[in-house]
């Protein structure tokens, strides 16, 4: 093995691992040194037992969080793309809709959560998916509209001069051309949708999902459980993000340059 490769592995594997271990040791030491009980703070060694104790709930409620996020995101993709198409192709629509969208996006969604939770009380699935959607469609709509409205006129002209229909031009050129922007926005949207799902799950009473498990931990001052949920959420969030990355590689890999 040559020296460069050795250094490379050192940098990419060993460095983050060591950093992680140092962090965990410091955390463990702090809790031990201060002698904090479980109702005050959790230590890393408490996390696994907490997870194991509630493992059934973790998987059951984790699934709730996952599918609600994906469902909200799916609606975002459909609505966001349609809105983006309307705004991208029609200047009147863009000028009319844009201020409304910006205004809507400016409202912190945390304030919308209790409103939706009260309006649709008891409909846990519906209001969770709704918040995931509301929080995440904006970047998709904006990026699709920008992608379409900044299409160079030559792109349209090469097909239009042959008598191609608007639909053909959209399918053959505008749509694939916009995919890199779309996936850029999707990476932001997936994180937002995940935040939306958890916000609702934490706020609504008698809910489901990991957010609800977190809330249970909070109510019973069970810090090990709360931290275990946070770790589970981080794993789920990373998983969702990388699914988007893989889809991007498949559908818009051409936009990457070596």
């Amino acid at each position: 093995m040559n020296r460069d490769r050795y250094n490379d592995i050192l940098r990419r594997v060993l460095a983050p691992t060591v950093a992680m271990i140092v962090l965990l040791v410091l955390w463990e030491w702090l809790v031990w040194f201060k002698d904090w009980p479980n109702y005050k703070m959790a230590s890393p060694s408490d996390l696994w037992p907490a997870f194991w104790k509630f493992r059934g709930l973790f998987f059951e409620l984790g699934w709730d969080t996952l599918w609600r996020t994906v469902a909200g995101l799916a609606i975002s993709i459909v609505v966001g793309t349609l809105l983006g198409m309307v705004m991208g192709f029609s200047r009147i629509a863009r000028e009319g809709l844009y201020p409304i969208l910006v205004g809507f996006n400016a409202i912190p969604k945390a304030t919308v959560v209790p409103v939706v939770a009260l309006m649709l009380i008891g409909l846990h699935d519906l209001n969770t998916v709704l918040i995931a959607f509301l929080i995440s469609f904006f970047p998709i709509a904006v990026s699709v509209s920008i992608g379409l409205s900044t299409l160079e006129p030559e792109y349209r002209d090469i097909l239009r001069s042959l008598g191609a229909s608007k639909f053909t031009i959209f399918i053959k050129i505008a749509l694939p051309k916009t995919l890199p922007e779309f996936f850029g926005a999707l990476k932001v949207a997936v994180t937002l949708a995940f935040i939306g799902t958890n916000l609702m799950e934490i706020v609504e009473p008698h809910g489901r999902g990991l957010g609800h498990l977190f809330d249970s931990g909070k109510i019973s001052a069970d810090y090990p459980l709360m931290f275990a949920v946070l770790i589970a959420l981080a794993i789920l969030g990373i998983f969702l993000y990388y699914v988007v990355i893989i889809l991007e590689r498949i559908f818009a890999g051409w936009a990457e340059r070596e």
């Binding site: 160079e152 030559e154 792109y155 002209d157 090469i158 239009r160 001069s161 042959l162 008598g163 053959k172 050129i173 694939p176 051309k177 995919l179 818009a252 051409w254 936009a255």
Partner: peptide, 18 residues
């Protein structure tokens, strides 16, 4: 109207990068 008996090339040689 546009007709398929015409070919066009522009200063900006736009390509379908995908």
């Amino acid at each position: 109207s546009p007709r398929p008996t015409v070919g066009m090339a522009f200063q900006n040689p736009v390509m379908l990068e995908w």
